[in-house]
């Protein structure tokens, strides 16, 4: 495990690069080109949002970065190390990645505390330390007092917070999130966005978040990577300049609205 806090780690060590990375499903010639060869850099310590319509390859790109799916061609580097050297996953690079899925995917037979500390358990961390870390993280994501409960006793939003805590438990430098708030109502979603921003500011991890929601993207992102479908490719990269911490009042700023309007016209193409 890293001894240094992630916020002290140089940005280039927590950056991600795609070099001609592509993903094709099905037989060559037929099948689906989920992502055409893509070269881009995701800045370390930054909050990057992947935005685009359904089927444009957002999940595919994130899953390749997370080490869940090998690229058909090209390379993916995490902190300068090739994640998929020789078709096998680079374990050291993988240890720096935390993934939050669209569903919380908590194990129903474990308490919240045990769920959060599961990655630590697999790494051989002792029970006392696991408990301490779980309690800290529950505090951080705002579900203190629910450590001993089972997932079914929590609301959807609280479960998603626990899933985020689990991904944070081993303090990865990079946090990947696939529509983590997609299943939540609009109000909870706004709260979670604000919380995520706070966590990001406290930890300075590299965050890559996938969303369908234009306003969520503009609210959260330092940089938006806009993807377009059939075949999946990067259409545009947009920097979002607002100061942090941002609060919901930025929704009213003319610049916010103009970025939203721009993205909307781009998406309608």
């Amino acid at each position: 495990m890293t001894v240094q806090p992630v916020s002290m780690i140089a940005d280039h060590q927590k950056s991600i690069s795609l070099k001609g990375a592509e993903k094709h499903f099905g037989p060559p010639g037929g099948g689906v080109q989920a992502l055409t060869p893509t070269t881009l850099d995701i800045v370390g310590g930054d909050m990057t949002v992947l935005l685009g319509p359904s089927g444009c390859g957002k999940t595919t790109m994130l899953r390749m970065i997370a080490g869940l799916e090998p690229p058909t061609a090209g390379t993916i580097e995490v902190g300068g190390a090739n994640l998929w050297a020789n078709g096998a996953r680079d374990v050291n690079a993988l240890k720096q990645l935390g993934m939050v899925f669209q569903e919380a995917n908590l194990f129903p037979w474990l308490t919240i505390e045990e769920n959060i500390a599961l990655p630590l358990k697999l790494r051989g961390v002792n029970k006392a330390q696991r408990q301490r870390k779980s309690r800290e993280l529950c505090e951080l994501v705002g579900i203190s007092g629910f450590e001993k409960r089972y997932p079914k006793e929590l609301s959807g939003g609280m479960r998603q917070r626990a899933a985020i805590a689990r991904a944070l438990s081993y303090d990865p430098m990079i946090l990947l999130m696939d529509e983590p708030f997609g299943a939540l109502d609009a109000i909870t979603r706004d709260t979670m966005n604000a919380e995520l921003q706070r966590i990001w500011m406290e930890t300075r991890k590299t965050v890559v978040l996938v969303t369908h929601s234009i306003t969520e993207a503009v609210f959260l992102a330092s940089r938006i990577i806009l993807l377009s479908p059939r075949p999946g490719r990067v259409q545009e990269i947009i920097d979002v300049p607002f100061e942090r911490p941002r609060d919901s009042s930025i929704h009213g700023l003319p610049e916010f609205q103009s970025i939203v309007a721009h993205l909307r016209t781009q998406l309608e193409h």
């Binding site: 997370a66 080490g67 995917n105 599961l118 697999l122």
Partner: peptide, 22 residues
């Protein structure tokens, strides 16, 4: 559940850990 397996894959669980923990 597929989602549970993916969690184990994302935290780099060994085959034995998958068997006993999931």
């Amino acid at each position: 559940e597929r989602g549970h397996s993916e969690v184990m894959a994302s935290i780099n669980a060994s085959p034995m850990q998958r068997l006993t923990q999931l």
